[in-house]
Design a binder for these strands. Sequence first.
DNA 1: CCAACTCTTGACAGCGCTTTCAACATCTGA
DNA 2: TCAGATGTTGAAAGCGCTGTCAAGAGTTGG
Lengths: 335, 335
Amino acid sequence: MSQARTLNDVAKIANVSPSTVSRILNGTAVVSSDKRKSVEDAIASLGYRPNVMAQALAKGRSMIIGVVTQAISSPFYGETFVGIEQGLANSGYHPMFISGHWRADEEREAVDILTARRSDAIIILGGNLEDEYILKMAKSLPIVTVGRSVEGLERQSIYISQEDGAMLGMRHLLELGHRKIAHLAGPSTHRDSIERLTGYKAALAEFGIAYDPDLVLEGNFQERGGLLAAELLLSRRADFTAIFAANDQTAMGARLALFRRGIRVPEDMSLVGFDDLFAAGYTTPPLTTVRQPGEDMGAAAAAMVLNLLEGHLQKPTTLTPSLILRESTSRLRFS
Amino acid sequence: MSQARTLNDVAKIANVSPSTVSRILNGTAVVSSDKRKSVEDAIASLGYRPNVMAQALAKGRSMIIGVVTQAISSPFYGETFVGIEQGLANSGYHPMFISGHWRADEEREAVDILTARRSDAIIILGGNLEDEYILKMAKSLPIVTVGRSVEGLERQSIYISQEDGAMLGMRHLLELGHRKIAHLAGPSTHRDSIERLTGYKAALAEFGIAYDPDLVLEGNFQERGGLLAAELLLSRRADFTAIFAANDQTAMGARLALFRRGIRVPEDMSLVGFDDLFAAGYTTPPLTTVRQPGEDMGAAAAAMVLNLLEGHLQKPTTLTPSLILRESTSRLRFS
DNA sequence: CCAACTCTTGACAGCGCTTTCAACATCTGA
DNA sequence: TCAGATGTTGAAAGCGCTGTCAAGAGTTGG
């Protein structure tokens, strides 16, 4: 294991002081062109790369943006990761992802790890961290939340109205004539689930339809939960004509349940998802869904963090959901 | 922004020297229980957390495992990330993911970023980095490759035979009686594609079937590539009865092409994928596919890295692909 | 021609921690 | 009782870098 070169090695070879090398590296001051030349030569010949850890210590900035996420393999957050990555590109900052698995304790541990590494800022994606906890952290560190709001920190969050999104999906179904619409909800502990359920009810009310709690079942935002919930529902009643799933993964699970029973989509049953995962465009049939622009959210979060690090507080960023019309819904037919 | 406490603050409050605090933190030496107590109290009351950056500088170990990946949102590598995360849990090391997007130059840049941060080891997931480049790095740093082999570094890689995997999928199709089997390959620049194509041909040969290059089209390992390739193929000929896709995403794209033309799966066309993405169990119909245990691969890579860091070279780890039988294939019917 | 500047440069302290070394305090056993 | 062993602690140097400060060289203008 060969030793990495240090700034001192460079200084020695170039016959200048370490300070000068540092100045050239950081552009902190004017340096005569002959010294600059010899330093650059020395750097090239040694293949020298500054030790970011040491820079971090000296400058008091780690150049790390901590990202507390829920699952590193989540298809939805995956798109957000891409946005964050790109938004941070060429800023000198780098993201460090730690997963919290939707458990407040693990999320707190993630934050611990990140602060132990002296992250310069933290982006929190969803999760169940307590508001007070986040507020306290926000006092000592720039924080941006995505997909969840924190009272008193509205200006540091990227937010999409889940309720509006749900209404978009539901109105579409209602306008197609559906009246008995089931909802496969997310976990009831999850704010997004709650908001989407609220949107479901609001749309129903808008069309003067009574809310029927029997038509709502709880899943877990995963395919399997959607499958199970749909099977259960199907075994109990058969009078509904459309399903509004709490997210695309749930919709895909439901799709399988329908397939198993030979119920055709969209001829016999209309199906609407939420998120617009990349895969939603490739289900059979392609899934009509409410789009959340995951990548844009990530990019916006990155931009906001960068702003915050420069001391600028920007106005709250609100992105909007939109309906992506594909082929899993059809006008209600009277059979 | 309140200042973070330092080890010195703790020392002062506890009335001991910084060395003693450090010893307690690291368990480096025996410390009398009264001092230990007062130090622990001081740590608790200050909410002190050691600065990992400073520890890194002093110890010469960053406790970062760099992970060069191709896309942070990749569904296949996502599972590997999970394995890495878990394999590294409680080791004190943390992964740092940087994406290379299958471009050697970006991958080299990723490595640069990682070495500038003095990663203690690097895990390379797939990619197009030149063998020599990796070999050179391996001299100064523990390196583990996943899903790609490097000549001379076999003992530091987690490998799955793509050829064997392809043969598994193909034999299944052949045993079902299919004789005209199309292959939607991955990018020809990609080693996995090449190996899988080799397996495709080998299986054909095994069954005494002539290789027909017209039945092979190149995709890009993405849904869209699969869709396009399948559409093109379908527009050119209709005499094949099965498709062996280079990966699940390609298969899903092909599935959509078939759906568009009203070709039923598996009645009219059998379809086999590769990878066994989580989503493969929820396509319509659920996809028969060759499984690569992504999470196990990640866990194995993490374990290998940890071993390497302790100076142990283990024997090459070879995991094996397996066939996951679902519902997208059926026995050839004479129509 | 010299005071007053302006540039460029190096010495040095310090970021927060680890680790070696030596000092001091105790404890053994002969 | 004392030499030697053992245990616990602090001082200080150093990890690789930045940033302040001051010195020395070179300019300018009255």
